[in-house]
Design a protein around this nucleic acid. Sequence first.
DNA 1: GCCGTTTTCGGCCCGACTGTTTTCAGTCG
Length: 581
Amino acid sequence: MAPLDNLAVARILSDIGDMLELKGENPFKIRAYRNAADSVANNPEPVAGVDADGLRKWPGIGKDLSAKIIEICQSGSCLIHQELMAHFPPTLLDLLRLQGVGPKTVALLYNELRIASLEDLEAAATSGRLRELKGMGARKEALLLHALEERKRHANRHLLADAADTADKLVEYLQARVPEVAFETVGSVRRGSETCGDIDVLASGSSTDLMGIFTSYHLVERILGRGDTKSSVLIRGGYQADLRLVGPESRGAALQYFTGSKQHNIALRDRALERGLRLNEYGLYRASDETRLGGDTEDGIYEALGLSWIAPELREHRGELESAAEHRLPELLQWSDLRGDLHMHTTETDGKDDLETMVLAARDQGLEYIAITDHSKALAMANGLDETRALAHAARIRDLNRRIDGIHVLAGIECDILADGSMDLADDCLAELDLVIASVHSALRQDESEMTARMVRAIENPYVDIVAHPTTRALLRREPSKVNVDQLARAAAAHGVALEINCQIDRLDLSDVNARLARERGVKLVISSDAHSRRALAVKKWGVVVARRAWAAKQDVLNTLPFEEFRASLRRNRTPQALQA
DNA sequence: GCCGTTTTCGGCCCGACTGTTTTCAGTCG
């Protein structure tokens, strides 16, 4: 059996937590399983290769869970998991993920009516049998039917870029109508999570008609709840949006609180408690006498807890509190640091805009240099280039580069890594170009050893400068390939090959966790748009978010360098010794 | 089930809203 990856192990731990909750177990035991699931999911090190002593160093994993995790890695399950699976039908967990349904309700439905699946629930709600149950009235029944219908209609996660766009429009609507209140997007959108479940907006100030204005937003499909300080709605496209209103004196505390993440907030509150303080969305208080110590600004909260201000992108409980306590958080990369874009396409292959249009658009965007990197011949569907066309295209790019002012244009290629790890174009062709990106577009389902060996072989080709979208994932659509990112990063570091953070909004590949791992292994990152049109050049903003979530500073990213330094830093332009390495 | 510079036992984040309740349990974030 292939070893389970971290997400698979985390899923089992989290399922155990859910099923323990259905049994009405000790809530802290349940939390322990969920914390362990988060810990495994967020750790870049492959869990299958870690021994018990190593696991016990991971946060939230002790003697008991380290043994269970090893059992899961070896057998795909563990005793308690199997016992619970025998006790509950697997479809029961689907019910738990319905809006408005928690463990108590699921237990009630199952114990009283043997409702074990979404289909069972729909049948029971439709036939009116639900109302036999204590605490189930007509409204609750309607709510469940709504939730079932919405489950069918919407996936409940959204790409970051889409969620951010929806949030921006909502905030713009609110701000225009209630100018005396300050609105800010908080939650996972503010943290820059690659996918977002809902949209959280914080309003600070004072307004009596705000909630009415919110719930009458023209994109609202359904009002989930409405109060004086908190309301929730479903808006078109399957987004849940939550609005919270606090007084201006609580803006900072509320920004902090509603930005999360949950794990970050729990840890922050722990820290407050250790200091005899109490933190909530209204402020920071001394526990003994309720004296208010802060809450009007966010950095004031962190400062009062002995911490540097922590950028929202870092608030994932991945060591940020410890670093902030020692005032050694990295100075994170900023959008304005980017000087180049090393991955884009033209009409020569599958781009929508021609060479000159792309170059002029990049110059308009303020870029100092770019690389044109059309596809190679293996991607026949995209009209990929063979050696002859690649060199002719390069000649045109260099000619344009000579004629145009204000931007440097490199003649590059995005060359396919074939299934055996060889390159799709001959070495003497690759050697003629200014920059070579290598990437995988086929045979995505190879097993881990095959895929890893394939990509390492590509890295060993002396003409490869950058590996693009290293895991080939498509968010909400396609799982990442099984490449071992740790081994990939070690090979890239050893050969001086950079790894890309691809900024296409459904790729964001490397991910935050993987980019951080690569950086820690000594790999330089590049942030590139992979634009197939002039408009798509702007997606680099999302790559900057990913890099920040990977704790990257300016010096970790090659395309922050001035042009000449960037060129000199490319693997092909370094010493001959480096080429032979 | 985890965790520890007040602890190896006794803690473990906290408040708003809904629905079905007459004082609160369940859910959510």
